[in-house]
Design a protein around this nucleic acid. Structure first.
Length: 960
RNA sequence: GCAGGGGUCGCCGAGCAUGGUCAAAGGCGUAGGCUUCAGGAGCCUAUCCUGUAGAGGUUCGUGGGUUCAAAUCCCACCCCCUGCACCA
């Protein structure tokens, strides 16, 4: 196996024997507590986990080197449904699935057999996961580890829910779900054969009266249109029933009657009949008590909602089209014995005023879009377009009773509420598209009753959650508004279910706590789990009162000791440990968890803990892509963490991931990049080794000062980036930019033996250590400095070492090289000789005068000339100065503000000396003889008279 | 549909908050040279177009606008990614 493996094993075992990542409270040190959402253990850790967790690890390592006491714990998520499902698929002998386990996850045959036990499966993946998390170099304190089915953890969850309930955040209610009648369980997206993403829609049922005791509940999304009803549509060929629904007599489709049974209603079908029986009868609008006819509508789908639809031809294209059809085809009406004249007299009733349309928008849009009849596919499109337009921009007209003058948008919700109160409206759920369960059974909507909810709708709770966000740092900052949006958007969340692994709801028989709801404040549990494990505290001792003491400071440890058998000292220690580590300093996850887990974490902290224990920062990052595509086991592009680390080594895997992206952008894993980094690291080890082993010349000249100065900037950049969790920026600066500086120094110096370089390499290794810890430990061991680099002091930026003069000197050389190369490129000369001519002193005065003006604001030519004329040195050369000044002004516009300020601040650069000192370097660079002259040197070689073109900061150049 | 994030020179990606310093960092790829050489790797140079002197031209999703000046600000449009609830 390659060398990275040996190095990794060596340092990992040294870290572990020295317990460098085990963190205990230390009052002398400031703490940093970082976490990563525990991964779900129905499969192996993959490179997506690696990406997110590496960001946490880099931050942990960075803070640790800065001298903080860093706690970075880890846990494993076992509660929930998928683990059971996975195990069952193995038990059933699902070939495709087993092949994935074998080939992608790399599960050995003898283990695979035991996966029929879901807990065994979880344990297997947990063991594998722990091993690879260690191998990739995560600096975790493993003493605090747990899985979510441990009884001690479940006691913690019980504590959490007892307190949440007491504070009124857990409520009971009903909830519609997509339901498989065969499995008798909710059918989540992942359990569906057909209909992914389909959710129940709530229809408003307007209870029109057929007669004094019989209702026709017509389904609609637009209850406000009740004011514009002109008739009812019934499909004459569909089956309808008369049924007793919660004691009332309803007429609905046969399908609807069945559906209503699952929606908390007692339904008793009295008789069945064809829709045509109703045609020609009349019904009463319950608001206006006017009566309207029931007409035949074949477009009415009995499978949708109640199969009863009311007609608003002014605003609904379908209604208008169907009505027009009938008006034009009296023979149809005659067949049903309907009074033709009466139908032909029906006029649309306008009730919504909307910009761009007159009284009858439906009529207009039908003409506008050239829709022929109700079978035209464009009719659907027109319906949607008009609905949207009227909802967003429509205002209810004066015929809309109490809602007249209000916008549709603002009136709708209150209107529904009012109608329900008046007994005019009811509701029904239905699916907008078919959903079929994996077991091939068509799904329905079921309203679950006695459901437990976390009441995220609670306005006060929302306000508290926002207060948490307000005091929190979000990385990147741009994600902060998203959290506020999510807090507003969240509503009641069903927090208990009946299947899967989980903690039983303390007060609810047969309910277990839903998994996203049991994983919200467990970071607190890490702080004390060390004691629970080390002292083998039994779950029954972990009463609510104990946790109330540990986390909230309630109760008396002496009394608790008597009741639970946990000593008072240990209880105090646990309390102290919690107080030391809390609050959480950083939680980082992928962005998909913002709308659920991370925001839940915020809500629950707000509910349970005082403000001083609210989380301080959260980081979110993108979703890892593989070679530009989403990673999926089924797509064959699934890369496990183990696979990557085996192939490329821990350091290269970490860095290839981090270089992919930062912020909320999705990083892309490319095998090519990982391979490249791996190669770079191999050569880096040799590169630094040679320098560290080489001679150490103590001389400190301009180049050494330059190197030190650049290094200060790199330290500043890396530190600032890491503080904001900009791991990509930080790594780029630490790896590539710093390396380039060092390479430049060596090239420019033409040797690599200075003590400064030696020190620079040490700083470099430290900057790199959080990212590539193994490599850096190995290289560090060659420095002669004792100890782990993982615990070495993070470099401090020293402003005194920032040397503007040294940097400007190199900038000057770089500019000269660029100009020269430009000339060579344009002339296509392969030079034998390159000559530079440095400007005479009075030109330098011109340069500085213009520079002063440019830095102050704007260099205007008139003012410049005035100032120049006043200078005794320049005065004799005014004619040349007049030609030179505009060129200098132009040249200066190309320099950054910072550089201009630096140049002004410096004494003049001795351009001639600088160039002369770099002759050897320039010679190599151009592969030619290099000479440096003063512009007016008597003995200069200047066959084309270029010297006179010299400007300050821009020597004249001659190549041949 | 709603919400959030994006579209930059072969690819990946900085930069856009505080307009000029932007033909636009860095990495990858590609080409040439050097070194080494079983293999690979390393180092240097070049990499939008044009140009016999340090220059000019055309670019930053599309179309408009503001400005002396726009990748950067404003408006409209197109496209991509993510999430949308009982599920981790």
């Amino acid at each position: 196996m390659s060398s990275h493996r040996e190095i990794e094993e060596k340092w990992r075992s040294r870290w572990e024997t020295s317990r460098v990542f085990e963190a205990d409270p230390d009052p002398k040190k400031q703490k940093v507590f970082v976490t990563f959402p525990y991964p779900y253990m129905n499969g192996p850790l993959h490179v997506g986990h690696a990406f997110t967790a590496t960001r946490v690890d880099v931050y942990a390592r960075f803070r640790r080197m800065q001298g903080y006491n860093v706690l970075w714990p880890w846990g494993w998520h076992w509660t929930g449904q998928p683990l059971l499902g996975a195990s069952q698929r193995v038990a059933k002998g699902d070939e495709a699935y087993i092949r994935v386990l074998r080939e992608v996850d790399g599960v050995p045959e003898e283990e695979l057999k035991r996966f029929v036990d879901p807990l065994y499966m979880a344990q297997y993946y947990t063991n594998e996961g722990r091993a690879i998390a260690r191998r990739i170099g995560f600096s975790v304190d493993w003493r605090r580890e747990f899985t979510t089915v441990w009884p001690t953890y479940q006691k913690f969850i019980e504590w959490q829910y007892a307190n949440l309930r007491e504070k009124g955040y857990v409520t009971k209610g009903t909830h519609p779900v997509v339901w498989c009648p065969k499995d008798k369980s909710p059918t989540g997206d992942h359990d569906r054969q057909i209909g992914e993403g389909v959710t129940p829609e709530e229809y408003v049922l307007i209870k029109y009266k057929l007669d004094e005791k019989t209702f026709l509940p017509a389904a609609t999304f637009r209850p406000e249109t009740i004011y514009g009803v002109t008739n009812m549509w019934i499909n004459p060929d569909a089956d309808y029933v008369e049924a007793s629904v919660n004691g009332e007599t309803w007429i609905v489709s046969g399908e609807a009657a069945e559906k209503l049974k699952e929606q908390e209603r007692s339904v008793e079908v009295k008789r069945s009949f064809k829709g045509r029986e109703l045609i020609g009868k009349t019904f009463e609008n319950p608001l206006t008590h006017k009566r309207f006819p029931i007409l035949p509508g074949w477009f009415v789908d009995a499978k949708t909602a109640t199969g009863v639809v009311y007609s608003v031809p002014a605003h609904a294209p379908f209604d208008w089209l169907a009505l027009r059809d009938l008006q034009q085809k009296p023979e149809v009406l005659q067949e049903f014995n309907v009074d033709v004249a009466m139908v032909q007299a029906i006029k649309p009733i306008s009730l919504i005023k909307v910009e761009g349309y007159g009284d009858y928008p439906a009529v207009e849009i039908v003409v506008e879009m050239g829709i022929k009849d109700q079978h035209d596919s464009k009719a659907d499109e027109a319906t949607k377009a008009l609905y949207k337009k009227e909802f967003h921009g429509g205002v209810l007209k004066e015929n809309c009773g109490a809602y007249a003058g209000k916008s549709v948008r603002e009136a709708k919700d209150t209107l529904i509420l009012d109608f329900k109160q008046m007994g005019v409206a009811d509701r029904m759920y239905d699916l907008p598209e078919p959903v079929v369960c994996r077991c091939m059974t068509p799904c329905i909507v079921k309203v679950l009753s006695d459901q437990w909810f976390l009441n995220y709708s609670d306005a006060q709770w929302k306000a508290q959650a926002k207060a948490v966000v307000a005091q929190m740092r979000i990385c990147p900052e741009s994600a902060k508004p998203w959290f506020y949006t999510v807090i507003d958007w969240l509503k009641e969340w069903a927090c208990a279910r009946t299947t899967g692994f989980g903690t039983p709801l303390p007060w609810g028989q047969g309910w277990i706590i839903e998994t996203l709801s049991d994983s919200t404040v467990y970071m607190a549990f890490y702080t004390v789990n060390k004691h629970i494990r080390q002292n083998d505290i039994k779950p029954e001792s972990l009463t609510r009162e104990v946790f109330d003491y540990v986390f909230l400071g309630k109760n008396n440890p002496e009394e608790l000791a008597k009741e639970t058998g946990i000593t008072a000292d240990l209880l105090r220690e646990m309390r102290a440990e919690f107080l030391y580590w809390y609050p959480l300093d950083l939680r980082n996850s992928a962005k998909e968890l913002v709308p659920n887990h991370l925001t839940f974490c915020i809500f629950h902290h707000a509910a349970l803990f005082p403000p001083e224990h609210w989380p301080r920062a959260m980081g979110v990052n993108g979703m890892l892509m593989i070679e530009g595509k989403q990673m999926h086991k089924s797509k064959g592009n699934f890369i496990t963490m183990k696979g990557a680390v085996d192939k490329y080594g821990a350091d290269a895997t970490r860095c290839a991931l981090l270089l992919g992206a930062e912020g909320m952008d999705d990083p892309d894993w490319r095998a090519e990049n990982a391979l490249d980094i791996q190669g770079k690291f191999e050569s880096l080890l040799g590169f630094t080794g040679n320098i560290l082993a080489g001679a150490k010349d103590p001389e400190v000249g301009p180049l050494e000062r330059w190197l030190q100065s650049r290094l200060q900037r790199r330290i500043g950049e890396v530190t600032a980036a890491l503080e904001e969790l900009k791991t990509r920026t930080a790594l780029q600066s630490a790896l590539f930019d710093t390396w380039n500086d060092i390479r430049y120094y060596i090239q420019r110096k033409e040797k690599a033996d200075s003590a400064t370089l030696n020190e620079a390499v040490k700083v470099w290794l430290k900057l790199l250590a959080p990212f590539a810890p193994y490599l850096c430990e190995e290289a560090w061991s060659k420095t002669g400095d004792a100890g782990f680099i993982s615990l070495a002091a993070w470099p401090q930026m020293d402003p005194a070492k920032v040397d503007v003069a040294a940097e400007e000197q190199e900038n000057f050389i770089a500019d000269v090289i660029e100009d020269t190369l430009n000339i060579l490129r344009a002339t296509k000369i392969a030079p034998k000789r390159v000559c530079f001519y440095v400007a005479v002193p009075w030109k330098q005065i011109i340069f500085r005068k213009i520079l002063e003006k440019a830095v102050a604001g704007e260099a205007k030519i008139g003012e410049v000339m005035k100032a120049l004329a006043a200078d005794p040195m320049v005065k004799p050369h005014m004619k040349e100065a007049a030609a030179l000044a505009p060129k200098v002004i132009k040249a200066l516009t190309k320099l950054s503000g910072e550089r201009k300020a630096n140049l002004l601040q410096l004494k003049e650069l001795d351009e001639k000396a600088i160039l002369q000192s770099a002759v050897g370097f320039l010679k190599d660079r151009f592969n030619a003889e290099v000479s440096v002259f003063g512009e007016d040197d008597q003995d200069r070689y200047d066959p084309k008279n270029r010297a006179a073109l010299a400007m300050s900061n821009q020597p004249a150049i001659f190549v041949e």
